[in-house]
Write a protein that binds this DNA or RNA. Structure first.
Lengths: 200, 200
DNA sequence: CTAAAACATTGACTTGAGTCAAAAAATGAA
DNA sequence: TTCATTTTTTGACTCAAGTCAATGTTTTAG
C-alpha cells in the first residue's frame, strides 16, 4: 500500500517527522503510512487556504512562513484566533470536528510552505494507526488548553494587560507581524494598539 | 480484578452507563472496569468540588443537580465558563491536562449527585481500555468546540446579543439559575443583565 | 525609482457597559 | 408568619476603548 523508505524523508519533511516523533512512538512502517497522506504545498502571502463556508477538509503543518486562523464579524472586522509559525499545526478545528461549514478562514500571513492532510485521510489514520488516536488526542489537548487560556485572558484582561502578556509570552507575534495582525489577535482596534505602544 | 455484574448497574449508574455507551462500544467486561473507577458522591448547594490552586484530580459526571466551572479575577468577580446539568461531564480540563494547579473552581450550583473518577484512574483507563482513548478524544472534541464557540461569541457579540443567543441556545440556564449565575456566565454585571431583560 | 496602496499615528468625540448607591422584591430559617 | 439575608431593579455618573477623520510613514508593484 505504501512504499516509502527512509531516504525519501528529505528536506521539509524532516520537520514534520521530528514533530510527529516528539509526540508518539511509531514504527518506520507506520511513519511511512502517515507521511504518505501528507502533501506539500506553497501559499503566497494573503492567500486563503480555507475560506468561510467551506467545510474544513484539511489540517496544515507549517514548514516555513506563518498562517493564521481568523473570522470576521458582521461589521467586517476580523479577529485572529491563532497564528501558526514554523513547526506548528493549524486547523479550523471546529469545522474539522463537526464537519460543518467553517466560520473561520485560514490565511497565509507570509509566503509559506506547508504540508496538509485531508480530513478523510486524517480520520482514516485514526482507524489504521493506533498511535494516531493518541497523536490526535495530544493535539486536541494542546488546542484546548490554548483556547481556554485565551478565553480567560479575554474575560479578565483589559487592552494593556493583553498586550503586555503577549509581549511576555509570544514576542514573536509582535516582532514578526504587522500592527494590524497584532491588533486583530488581541481583538482591539489598531488605533488602541498604537496608543498602547506609545504608553509603554 | 473487577467483579461487577449487570445487576449491579442500578439507579444512578444507568445514566452514566448509557452516556458511555452512546459514545463508544465496549464489552461488558470493559464497561465493568470503567465503572469500577467511578465513585458516587453528593454535594450541597454552593459546595466546592475543586478549589483554586489544587490540581484537578477528578472529573465529574452529573447525575442530579448542576455544577459550574468558574474562575475569579483580581477584583474578585467570577466568570463562569461552563454549567453541567444532568447527564453531563464537568472537568477543570486545563488543569486536568497539564497537571498544574487549577485556576478554576468547580462548585455545586444546586444540591447535586455526581460520579467522579480520579485523574490517575482516568489515565490508567487510557492504557487498559483501548476504546477509552476514543472516549476521551470525543470528550475533548466536544469541549474544544464548546469553548471555541464561546470564545468567538465573546469576541464578536455585545451584551444583548450574548443574552439573546443564550435564551435561544441554552434556555435552561436562564430558566433554572439565578440572574447572578447568568450574568457570571455572560461575563456582564448583574445590573446590565437586569437592564437587558427589561429591554426585551 | 516612483507612484499608489497599505499601514500607523494622533486628535476629537461617542458609547456600551461598569460602578456605586439606594430601594424593591424574593427567598429562607426559625 | 416574620424578620433577615440575598437577589433584583433602577438611577446617576464614569471610563476604557471604539469611531471618524486627517496626516505621516512604510511597503510594494511595475
Amino acid at each position: 500500500m505504501v512504499n516509502l523508505t527512509e531516504t525519501d524523508f528529505n528536506g521539509m519533511e524532516e520537520l514534520l517527522i521530528s514533530y510527529i516523533k516528539s509526540k508518539i512512538s511509531v514504527t518506520n512502517e507506520e511513519l511511512a503510512t502517515i507521511l504518505s497522506y501528507f502533501k506539500p504545498m506553497k501559499a503566497k502571502k494573503n492567500e486563503l487556504l480555507l475560506t468561510h463556508g467551506q467545510s474544513s477538509q484539511r489540517t496544515f503543518f507549517v514548514v516555513k512562513g506563518c498562517v493564521r486562523i481568523f473570522f470576521i464579524n458582521e461589521e467586517g472586522q476580523d479577529s485572529t484566533r491563532y497564528f501558526a509559525f514554523e513547526n506548528q499545526f493549524a486547523t479550523a478545528l471546529v469545522s474539522f470536528i463537526t464537519s460543518e461549514p467553517s466560520e473561520e478562514f485560514i490565511q497565509a500571513v507570509e509566503d509559506s510552505e506547508v504540508y496538509y492532510i485531508t480530513h478523510k485521510n486524517f480520520y482514516q489514520l485514526l482507524e489504521i494507526v493506533p498511535q494516531w488516536e493518541k497523536f490526535y488526542r495530544i493535539y486536541l489537548e494542546i488546542a484546548y488548553v490554548n483556547n481556554t487560556k485565551r478565553l480567560m485572558s479575554f474575560l479578565i484582561q483589559d487592552a494593556l494587560e493583553k498586550y503586555r502578556q503577549l509581549l511576555d509570552e509570544s514576542p514573536i507575534i509582535v516582532r514578526r507581524l504587522s500592527n494590524k495582525m497584532v491588533a486583530s489577535y488581541l481583538n482591539i482596534s489598531q488605533e488602541t494598539l498604537s496608543r498602547l505602544k506609545s504608553k509603554l
